[in-house]
Amino acid sequence: MKTPTLRQRLRYDVGGVLPTDLQDWVLHELTGRRSTARYLARFLLPLVPLLMLFLLFPGPNWIAGLMMLLIFIPVVYFASGLHLVYRAFRLGQHGIDPASIPRTMPNAERDRETYEANYRHL
């Protein structure tokens, strides 16, 4: 699988579109193993230096820490919640069918069948 150059990778990380010969890499990057961790790291790491600016405020560091958490926790929550939307958008940007994203959890079908077998009579 061909990988992007450093310049292409930086462009991709800020929202740019890669050439069509890198679609396999994009598909793996967005839907492959550990894609969620890569997405969260790419989304949250640039936020950390900005949050460190709270340490410049006068007062105890625990107050600065709480101010950082007041921003960081909702950002993690919404970034996690919008992960599938972001992946579908990025796949569409690169001309890949967004339906290739698995929408169900691996054991969801089995769990549903077990539930229906146990509680069908109710």
Score class of each variant (00 low, 15 high):
18 L>M: 11
8 Q>M: 07
112 R>I: 01
11 R>H: 12
50 L>H: 04
8 Q>H: 06
60 P>V: 07
122 L>F: 10
2 K>C: 01
23 Q>F: 01
117 A>T: 11
42 R>F: 04
88 A>T: 03
21 D>R: 15
75 V>Y: 09
64 A>I: 04
27 L>G: 03
112 R>Y: 12
38 R>Y: 10
86 Y>G: 02
75 V>L: 11
81 G>Y: 09
115 Y>M: 12
5 T>S: 15
77 Y>R: 06
91 L>M: 08
99 A>P: 02
38 R>D: 03
76 V>G: 02
10 L>S: 07
49 P>W: 04
23 Q>D: 11
75 V>D: 07
90 R>A: 03
9 R>N: 05
67 M>N: 02
6 L>W: 08
90 R>N: 03
111 D>R: 15
121 H>S: 11
20 T>K: 15
96 I>V: 14
65 G>V: 04
27 L>F: 12
45 L>Y: 12
90 R>P: 00
13 D>S: 08
26 V>I: 06
93 Q>E: 13
21 D>W: 13
88 A>K: 12
100 S>D: 02
45 L>S: 09
25 W>C: 00
89 F>V: 03
78 F>H: 11
96 I>F: 05
66 L>P: 00
34 R>D: 11
23 Q>K: 15
110 R>Y: 05
101 I>S: 03
44 L>V: 05
3 T>A: 13
84 L>N: 13
105 M>Y: 07
71 I>E: 11
121 H>D: 10
105 M>L: 15
27 L>D: 01
24 D>W: 04
87 R>S: 02
4 P>N: 07
86 Y>S: 08
24 D>A: 13
102 P>L: 01
8 Q>F: 05
98 P>A: 13
68 M>R: 06
65 G>T: 04
80 S>E: 05
19 P>C: 12
75 V>Q: 10
56 L>H: 00
102 P>T: 01
100 S>M: 14
68 M>T: 01
62 W>V: 10
64 A>P: 02
63 I>E: 12
31 T>G: 10
84 L>R: 15
27 L>I: 00
58 P>N: 03
74 P>A: 05
13 D>Q: 12
13 D>P: 01
